[in-house]
Amino acid sequence: MVEHRIGYLIKGVQQAIRHRMDNELRHLNLSTSQYAALSALERSDQMSNAEMARACFVTPQTMQQLVKGLECEEWIERCSHPEHGRIIQTRLTASGRAVLDQAHCLVEAIEEIMIEGLSQPARERLAADLKLCLNNLIQ
């Protein structure tokens, strides 16, 4: 039965969490994809658009549009590298960090709902198992 297949269940969870995130992040005038991009920049402001696209599971063209939207909201700023003028650096602004902090709280609450009823060891095992599954598929 298809509803017992692991891939099907993972896709169902992904769809459900995406729907919840879209609904909650909308209150911050933020899309789930924009949240992913801001989160990627929070981890490293040295990423190229292509690296950000891979980290956010979107195409480089989509990332370019996301970056433009984030720039219009003044959540990020882009400037030339001080030593290498052809390299464009993208950084979070203070308002970008503020909206990201609010978004993290919303997303953490959604994740808590998702794993409600799981003990701490079960949560850790789930995270480890999902990481293993991901690594198995990307190698």
Score class of each variant (00 low, 15 high):
K11I: 08
Q64F: 14
Q139P: 01
V99Q: 00
M1G: 15
N49F: 05
E74R: 15
A16D: 04
W75T: 00
I10P: 03
V13F: 11
S44I: 06
E116M: 06
Q14T: 08
R20N: 11
Q61W: 14
N29T: 05
N29G: 13
K11V: 05
S80E: 15
L118H: 06
E73F: 15
I10F: 12
S48G: 07
L66K: 11
C105N: 05
H104T: 04
C56P: 00
H81R: 13
G96P: 06
P60A: 03
S39E: 02
V67S: 13
T32Q: 06
R86M: 13
A98V: 08
K68L: 12
L25W: 04
K68A: 13
Q120R: 14
Q46I: 02
Y35N: 00
A94S: 12
A94D: 05
L66A: 10
S80R: 15
A128W: 12
N49K: 07
D129P: 03
G7D: 08
G85A: 12
A122R: 14
R123L: 12
A40T: 10
R5E: 12
S119M: 03
K131W: 11
S31M: 06
A50I: 11
M114C: 15
L9Q: 08
A16Q: 09
L134Q: 12
R125C: 10
Q34W: 00
G69M: 11
N23V: 07
P60G: 04
E51W: 07
